[in-house]
Amino acid sequence: MTGNPALRNVMTLGRLALRGIGRLASPRPLGPDAGPAFEQALSGLLAEPAVSAHIRVARLVSLAPEEGWRSLDIDLATGEEMTVLAAGGYWASKPLDLGFGARIGLWLRMGGKTVVKTQTNSSTVTASQGGSLEIVAKPPGEWADEEGAFDPAYPRGGVEGIVAACIIVWKQGALAGLEAMSRAGDYEGLVARAREEVLNPVFPPQGWRYLWRLGEGRIFRDANNGGGHSICCHTAGDVGILQYPVDVPLTENTRLRWRWKVDRLPCDLPEDIQPTHDYLSIAVEFDNGQDLTYMWSSSLAEGTIFRCPLPYWDKVETHWVLRSNPADLGKWLAEEQPVRADYARAVGAPPARIVKVWLIAVSVFQRREGICEYADIELVDGDRVLKIA
C-alpha cells in the first residue's frame, strides 16, 4: 500500500465503493428484517396463552434514527428480568455497505439513571434499578454521561432505517418464558438465541469490565487450556472495550508485556479512516484521559502511528501499529513496550500515571470476523511486576 496517506485513503474508499457496487444486487442485511413480518410474528407469539402466562408486560416499538429516549410506560422493580428481541438497523452509507444493526445499537435506561446496552439482538437484562423503563436506538458512543444524556458535540443524524424491538418483562424470570415461547414459534432465530444466551451467559474475565460508553458485550471470555490461562476475543459486526483498573506510576522503566495470538483480522484494508477502522489491540489509559493502543494491522506498516479517525476518540486515542506481517497470524508472539518512551513519541509530554489497561475489538464497520487471544499481560517497572491476566 502506498505511503502517501491522502492517496491511500482515496484508494481505500475506491475499493470500498467497488465492493458496495458488487453487493447492490444482494446486499448484506444488518440483521433480521424489521418490517411487518417482525411485528406480526412477535405479536402472535406474545398472544399465545402458554407464552402470555409468563409475561407481566410487553411492548412492540419501532425506533427512528433521530429519535431520543422513548418511554415504554413500564415501571420496573429491581431484579426483574426482561428480554429484548430486536431487528433492523441503520445505514450510514448503502453504497459503501456501512451500517449497524440493532444488535449493537439498542440501549435501555432504568429509573432515569441506569443505562445499559443489550449485548445482542436477543438479550435478557436484569433490572439493577427500579423505576421507569426507556429505550433508544443509536450508534455506540456519543454519550455525555453515564445517565444517558446525549453529547451535543455529536448531533445525531446522517443515518436512515428502522430498528424494531419487542421488550418483554417476565413474571417469574426469563428462562421459563423463553422456553414456552420457543415451543410456540420463532422469528429468524431470535427466540432460540435469547434462550441460548440465558442458558450460556458470557461473563467478562475476572477483574475486567466493559467500557460503559460502548456497552456490555459477549466478545471477551476467559479460557483455560493446556497452555495456561488466556483471554479469548471473538468479534463479528460489533465493538467492545474491556478495561482493567490499575494505579501505576509511569516511569522510564515502565514496560507493558503480553503475549497474543491473532488468528483473524476484522479488516483487510488500511484501518486509519473511519469506514475501515476495524481492528484488534491492547491499550494503556493514562491519568490525563489519553490512551495509547498497540494494534494489529492488515495493511499499514509496522511502526505507523496515527490519531483515531472516529469522532470523540480523535481527541483521546492514538494508534501504534505493532504488527502487520500476515506470516505472524496464528502464532503466539511475545511483546514488551516501553510505555513512557512510546507515549512521548506518539502523543507528547508523558503523564504521571497509568490508570487502566484495555483490550479493544472493533468490527462494526466492515462487519467481518476477528479472532485473537491474549495472555501474560503485565505492567513491569524494574523488580515490580503487576500481573493483569
Rank of each mutant, 00 (worst) to 15 (best):
K138P: 02
R209Q: 09
L175D: 00
E188W: 10
A37Y: 10
D186S: 12
Y279G: 04
D381V: 06
A301R: 05
R213A: 08
F365S: 04
I219D: 07
I231P: 08
V355E: 04
S123E: 04
R59Q: 09
E81V: 04
T78V: 11
V246W: 01
V316H: 02
V362L: 05
E302Q: 13
M82F: 08
N9F: 14
W258C: 13
I168P: 15
A192W: 04
P152I: 00
V262I: 14
M11S: 15
P29Q: 02
P275D: 10
T318L: 03
V339C: 11
D222F: 03
R259H: 05
L199N: 01
P205N: 05
D238N: 12
G289Q: 07
A346D: 14
S43N: 13
L250D: 00
P5R: 15
G148Q: 00
F100S: 06
R264N: 06
D278L: 11
P140S: 09
I55N: 14
F38G: 03
G189S: 12
L333H: 10
A327C: 02
L108N: 01
W170I: 08
R255W: 14
D268Y: 04
L106H: 05
P245Y: 03
N288M: 12
R195H: 04
D272R: 09
W313Y: 14
K138F: 05
G207Q: 04
D287W: 02
F365N: 13
A283Y: 15
G189A: 10
G3T: 15
Q129E: 15
A334N: 15
R109A: 12
P350R: 12
N4L: 12
D278A: 10
G240V: 00
D75N: 15
L108D: 01
W91V: 12
M295S: 14
G226C: 06
S26E: 06
L300E: 06
Y312V: 11
T2P: 07
L108M: 08
V136T: 03
A165H: 03
G157L: 12
T2N: 07
A6G: 05
H319P: 04
L379Y: 13
P266M: 00
A192I: 06
Q337W: 09
C372H: 05
S52F: 11
L106F: 09
N9G: 11
A341L: 15
G141P: 01
N225C: 10
L322C: 12
T120H: 09
P311V: 01
G289H: 10
V364T: 13
I167G: 05
G161P: 04
I354P: 06
D278R: 11
W260Y: 09
D263V: 00
K94M: 05
L256W: 09
K331V: 02
C372K: 06
S62N: 12
S93R: 11
Y244I: 13
A64F: 09
L133N: 01
I354N: 03
R156N: 06
V316W: 02
F150N: 07
A137E: 04
L386R: 09
W143Q: 06
